[in-house]
């Protein structure tokens, strides 16, 4: 139980960490100042969630590891995030599409987690769900605006969707960890969120005049259990962990 809970918390924490890291790369480079500021807010929320999830993961593990230890001192195979969040930012459209596909899941997942039998998880989810609700509103609006905007913006968004949608489906594959946690009433079964997700996404895409591609997540192995990652993750870590690795054990 403790092992499964640790694993499940890492999945939440690592998704938030890696996506927060990716979104933070935009700071100073967004298409317009208002978007620059908004993206930074999203990244800040995600990094805040990371802190809460990983701190609790460390406590559940019981080996005295802090949120920082988990973020900065694990190697790629120990990360439990889905592949979607580690993909490069691409153009702004790809970033926003990835954000929407994740936000929509994150909101449903967090709302379900507010019902968790683990009160600590329920409390964190309560706070994070409010943030996620705003993220969805914002990323959804931008996906719609760009999908329905000009010919060029429409084409770019369709391309982003075609690339990213198969990755989004990884969010719904389940394994023993999910089963055990769902059984215990601590985490929702990802499969139980899928219908609501597909309905919401379909509505958004329709408004955005985008076509849902025929797709499934075809990779064998998933980031959720660390058996699969893209090569991008290692490069994220070489940046993110540089100081902690080059000057071990220092106070910053």
């Amino acid at each position: 139980m403790a092992d499964a809970k640790f694993e499940a918390l890492l999945r939440l924490g690592d998704n938030a960490l890696i996506l927060g890291h990716r979104v933070s790369e935009w700071c100073g480079h967004a298409p317009v100042l208002e978007e620059d500021i908004a993206l930074a807010n999203t990244a800040l929320d995600l990094l805040g969630q990371t802190n809460l999830w990983l701190e609790y993961a460390g406590e559940v593990e019981g080996k005295g590891r802090s949120a920082d230890d988990l973020a900065f001192l694990r190697d790629a195979w120990d990360f439990r995030n889905v592949l979607l969040v580690e993909l490069p930012n691409g153009d702004f459209g790809q970033t926003i599409m990835r954000q929407y596909l994740f936000d929509q899941f994150n909101l449903l997942n967090l709302r379900a987690l507010t019902e968790s039998k683990d009160t600590r998880i329920a409390e964190i989810a309560e706070k994070a769900a409010k943030e996620a609700a705003y993220h969805v509103e914002r990323s959804r609006g931008t996906v719609v605006g760009l999908g329905d905007g000009t010919q060029e913006s429409h084409a770019r968004m369709q391309e982003a969707l075609n690339l990213l949608y198969p990755y989004a489906l990884e969010l719904f594959i389940t394994d023993e960890v999910d089963d055990e946690m769902a059984e215990a009433g601590v985490f929702p079964d990802p499969k139980s969120l899928e219908d609501a997700y597909l309905v919401a996404v379909a509505a958004t895409l329709q408004e955005a005049t985008l076509d849902l591609p025929e797709a499934h997540f075809g990779h064998r192995g998933s980031g959720k259990d660390g058996r699969m990652h893209t090569e991008h993750l290692g490069h994220i870590l070489t940046q993110m962990q540089w100081l902690q690795r080059a000057y071990p054990g220092q106070t910053w």
């Binding site: 208002e34 500021i37 908004a38 807010n41 705003y134 914002r138 609006g141 605006g145």
Partner: peptide
């Protein structure tokens, strides 16, 4: 969007 930008 102006409302959302104002919030941010």
């Amino acid at each position: 969007t102006a409302i959302m930008n104002a919030r941010d």
